[in-house]
Amino acid sequence: MDVTIVLQQIINGVIVGSIYALMASGLSLIWGTMKTLNFAHGEFYMLGGFFMFILNVQAGLNPILAGAISILFIFVVGVIMQRLVIHYLMDKPGWDVSPLIATFGVSIFLQNLSLKLWGERFKNIPYYLGGEASFFGINLSYHRILILIIAVVVIFTLWAFLKYSRFGMALRATSQDRDAATINGINTKKMFMITFGISAILATAAAIMLSPIYSVNPWMGESLLLKALAVIVIGGLGSLVGAIIAGVGLGVLEGVGILFFPSEWQNVIAFSILIIVLWIRPSGLFGTKEW
């Protein structure tokens, strides 16, 4: 087989994988602070896509401005969702399952709400950057390069935010010991809302970058959510580094896999890996504890 084709697919895989990592890191953040999953995470992505379409294509705003406004909006959506749904379930009996069912409900609601508002026709967003780069016989559109850059920047920013900022540290403190956080003056309720908001931002960033490649529709979040769930489990729930490595790894595997399997079998491979990993190593590849 031609080496350049394989190389091309690896690079494409890294790019798609960086988006998986972006999605997965949002889920991972919520797991880290609240020990639960958000089955409506794909809907943040979907709403992000629609907002971008409306602002960029319909309202004609430039992509940067449209993206910034979308991010702001979806942040608010995330905060509201935590306050209206998750907030009422926390510290109640059944917390291990109730948010799973509730966010499932939210997901159904948001999908059908956007179906009602924007219809089922697939919508397209043009590339933010035209043209493509060629090197060593590999062709790469500037847009895809931009995806990688944005994903790296966003993930790095998230890391720095968690590591060094006042709120980021408070967020980590909250995830480790809520009562101790409270007596140090951290309003943990607010932290949980912010966590959801940030998680929503990460999904929106993914949506902004990926929507020009795929299309915008009410169901676009569903398959990516499943992928992201697989990624955080493979990487080890709560491990940000694990989510990133597993995300990029899965992207590359799929990219190269396309050369050997028909593309419609791609997801079967992804979920089979998920099941095998959970079977052999329930804590994931980078997780430390079994939850």
Binding site: D96, L226, F271, S272, L274, L278
Partner: peptide
């Protein structure tokens, strides 16, 4: 597995495989 979220993800993944 013990934790509900793990079981949820695993079974969701399984159903997706069957559907695909």
């Amino acid at each position: 597995l013990r934790a509900a979220p793990y079981i949820a993800i695993l079974t969701l993944g399984f159903a997706e495989i069957v559907k695909l």
